[in-house]
Computed example of a mutant assay.
Amino acid sequence: MTAGCLVPRFTPFDHYMEYQTYDVTDRFRVGDNIMGLAVGDGRYRGRLGFASRRNAYGNQLAALLQIELDLADGTTRTVVTDEGWAAGPGRIIGSDPKHGERVDLRIPDSDWLSAAQRPGRFGAAQLLTGHPRRLVAEEVPRVGEISRWPATRVWRAPSGRHRLVELIEQADHRLDTGFLSTPMLLQVLTDNGHTNVGFR
C-alpha cells in the first residue's frame, strides 16, 4: 500500500533515519486482518560508493511498525511489531540501489498476505535490542513512479544467468547527485556476459 520508492530516503543511518506514516483506515475490515511488511537491503545494507561496499550501516534487516486503530466504540487499539510476528524470505532475494532487484519467481508472492497459517518458510520474528539511532519524521516528498516504458527486446545473456531487457530511451535517465556534472546511470554487460551497472 505504500506506493513509494526508495523509502526511507538516504540519511546517515548510523545516526538517524526517517519513518513514514500512512492512513490505513480503508485497509481494515471487521474480523481477522493480516498485516505484513516487505523489507529490502536498500542503502542500509546494499552496495554503496565506487567500491560497491555492502553493509555500510549494518548487516541485519529489521522493521518497526506501530498501528493506531480508532474503533467505532471510541476506544483505541495499538498494534506493534513484536515476537508474536513471523518473519521469512520472500521472492525478492536481493534489492540493491546500484545493482537493482533480483526476484525468484518460484517463491509465492501472496501466501504470506492471505494464508490463515504462516508459510512453512517463516519462523518467529526476533526482537532486536535497542539502538542509538534516532527516528525522525519525513522531511521531503517520497520518490514515486512517473511512467513505465515497454521493452523492445528481451533475451538471455551469453552466460544464461540473466534475462536482459532493452528499453527505448524516451528521455535521459539522470540522477541528481550534487556533483557539478550529473552522471548518467545505465546497465552494462561485463566481459563474461553478466549484468552490471555503469556510470558515465
Rank of each mutant, 00 (worst) to 15 (best):
L189I: 09
W112T: 01
R53D: 11
T195I: 12
T81Q: 03
A86G: 11
T129G: 13
S110M: 03
M17A: 12
R200G: 10
R142I: 07
V136R: 05
L65D: 07
H162D: 15
G144I: 13
F179Q: 07
H131T: 15
A151M: 07
M35F: 13
G31P: 03
I168F: 07
W85Q: 01
T182A: 02
A151D: 12
S110G: 11
I92D: 01
L48K: 04
P183E: 05
D96F: 07
L185H: 09
A125C: 01
H194A: 08
L189F: 04
R142T: 09
I146N: 13
R43N: 08
R121Q: 15
A3V: 08
P141C: 06
I93P: 00
V188T: 15
Q117A: 11
H194D: 14
V188Q: 07
C5W: 09
T81P: 04
T129C: 04
G74C: 09
R9M: 14
K98T: 04
T21C: 01
R153F: 10
L128G: 00
F50H: 09
V7D: 05
L6R: 15
V79L: 15
V143C: 09
A157G: 12
D191G: 09
F10K: 10
L113G: 07
R102F: 13
G31Y: 03
L128C: 02
M35H: 11
A51G: 08
Y19W: 01
D96L: 13
P108D: 15
T81N: 08
D23Q: 08
P150L: 08
A86I: 02
A151Y: 10
M17N: 15
P97Q: 05
G4D: 14
F13V: 08
R148P: 03
M35P: 04
R174S: 12
G94W: 06
F28S: 00
R142D: 03
L164F: 02
Y19N: 11
Q126V: 07
H173G: 11
G94Q: 06
V39F: 02
Y44T: 04
H162S: 03
M184E: 06
P158S: 00
L48P: 03
I93R: 10
R45V: 13
G36V: 05
P8C: 04
R153N: 14
V188G: 11
E145Q: 08
A171D: 07
L71N: 15
W85V: 00
G42D: 11
G46V: 04
G36I: 06
